[in-house]
Every structure is written in structure tokens, then in C-alpha cells.
Computed example of a mutant assay.
Amino acid sequence: MGVIFDRIWFWSRVLLQERQILTSVMEAAYRNWDAAVQIARDYREHPIGRFLYTPLQLKDPEPEVFHLAMESAADDELALMRRGDKILEAVIALSPLLGLLGTVLGLINSLGSISISDLGTASTAGVTLGIGESLISTAVGLVVAIISLAFYRLFQAFFFGQVRIFRKAGSDLEVLYRQKWLESGEETASKASPPFSSSKKS
């Protein structure tokens, strides 16, 4: 339950602010690259903000370096988004087994307390009650596993949605940066080349 509540709190914060942050950064990148860097810096507490700010904070990197920085940031943020998944996987696998173990131990205890001569008599009434109680552990284990599996699948859906968003945002930002890189290179080349001039011989 602790993992489930922690993940619910995490995903609620991520999903509520993500669209606003992404739109703000990308719109600023179209107009003013420095403004996009500032906006991403302001949202460093959010996963998508940290993802975008990591390559943006570099000082005029080459496109390959920009791409590598973005990939590294995406790997780090997506790994943090899967925190708690291993615990839920363990609970899903172990809770039915623990419930079944409790049922088996309860049956052994109940059936071991009767003898053949007690069959068909009133003394076996407590045995049936013990068997019924022993089955409760299996039911509880299955309920825990079902609830954990439902939230695990929900968190997995959120995670794969983030993978698509990160990939799309990273591709768009990289395209913008490559255009900026090419334009700055062309401007540098035009300034470095001497203007064409002709002289007439007298």
C-alpha cells in the first residue's frame, strides 16, 4: 500500500503539469532559445523539465553531443519512473503463495486433530470451521495480488505513455537544435568569407 500511494502521488504530479511544461518549453524554443533554457531551468523539479534542461544547459554543443545528453537524461528519468515496480511484482508473485501456504498449514492442523472414530460425530464440527478459516488466507492473498496487479498495470500504462512523450519531445527539440546549429554555422561562414570585389585595371 505504501508503494501504491507513493506512485499515485508521483504520477498525479507528473501528469497534471507535464503538458503545460512541454508546451511552454517548445513554444519558447521556436522563438528564443535562451528563453527555452530559462523555462526548462525553472521546471527542474519535474521529470520532463529535467529531461529538457539537461541538453539545453550545454553551451553550444555539437548535435551529436546534444543527442547523447538527451538520451542519457531520458534513461535517468524513465528509470526513476519505474521505482517501486519490483516491489509490486514481488507482492503479486508472493501473496497468492503465502495465502496458499496458510491454507495448507491450516488444513494440516485441522485434519490432524481428528481420528477415524470421530467421523460422522459432532466432534468433527470444529474441523469444518477450521477448514473454512484456513481458506481465508488464500482469499486474502488473492485479493492482495489482484489489487497490486491492477495498480501495477496502471502504472505501466503511465510509464509507456511517458516513453512516447519523451521520444516525441526529444525528437522535436533535437530538430530545432539542428536547425539552430546549421543557421549559426552559416552565419559564421558568411562573416568569415570576404565580400566579392572587382577592380578595373587602368
Score class of each variant (00 low, 15 high):
187 E>V: 15
177 Y>A: 03
25 V>H: 00
106 G>I: 06
192 A>I: 15
189 A>K: 10
39 I>P: 07
124 T>E: 06
100 L>F: 13
155 F>K: 04
164 R>S: 10
68 L>M: 14
91 V>S: 01
176 L>R: 03
139 A>Q: 06
66 F>E: 06
102 G>K: 07
80 L>Y: 09
112 G>A: 03
198 S>E: 10
73 A>T: 01
48 I>Q: 10
117 S>V: 11
154 L>C: 02
17 Q>R: 15
70 M>E: 01
201 K>G: 15
144 V>Y: 08
26 M>C: 02
130 G>R: 11
113 S>T: 15
135 L>T: 11
171 S>A: 12
33 W>C: 10
194 P>N: 09
194 P>F: 14
104 V>N: 02
195 P>F: 05
38 Q>P: 02
141 G>S: 04
2 G>A: 15
112 G>V: 04
173 L>C: 00
151 F>K: 01
31 R>F: 06
173 L>V: 01
61 P>A: 08
85 D>C: 08
95 S>W: 07
41 R>W: 09
117 S>H: 11
189 A>Y: 05
63 P>N: 05
59 K>F: 07
153 R>Q: 03
9 W>H: 11
123 S>M: 13
2 G>R: 10
95 S>L: 09
155 F>S: 09
170 G>P: 02
69 A>K: 07
53 Y>D: 14
148 S>H: 00
73 A>L: 04
183 E>Q: 15
49 G>R: 02
148 S>C: 05
154 L>S: 05
51 F>Q: 04
172 D>M: 11
2 G>H: 11
26 M>D: 00
58 L>V: 03
200 K>A: 13
155 F>M: 07
111 L>P: 00
98 L>C: 09
51 F>H: 03
40 A>L: 10
122 A>S: 12
90 A>C: 00
61 P>I: 08
200 K>P: 08
34 D>H: 04
179 Q>T: 03
188 T>W: 06
115 S>W: 05
105 L>S: 00
37 V>R: 14
35 A>Q: 14
60 D>N: 12
113 S>D: 12
57 Q>P: 01
148 S>D: 00
176 L>E: 05
195 P>N: 06
101 L>W: 08
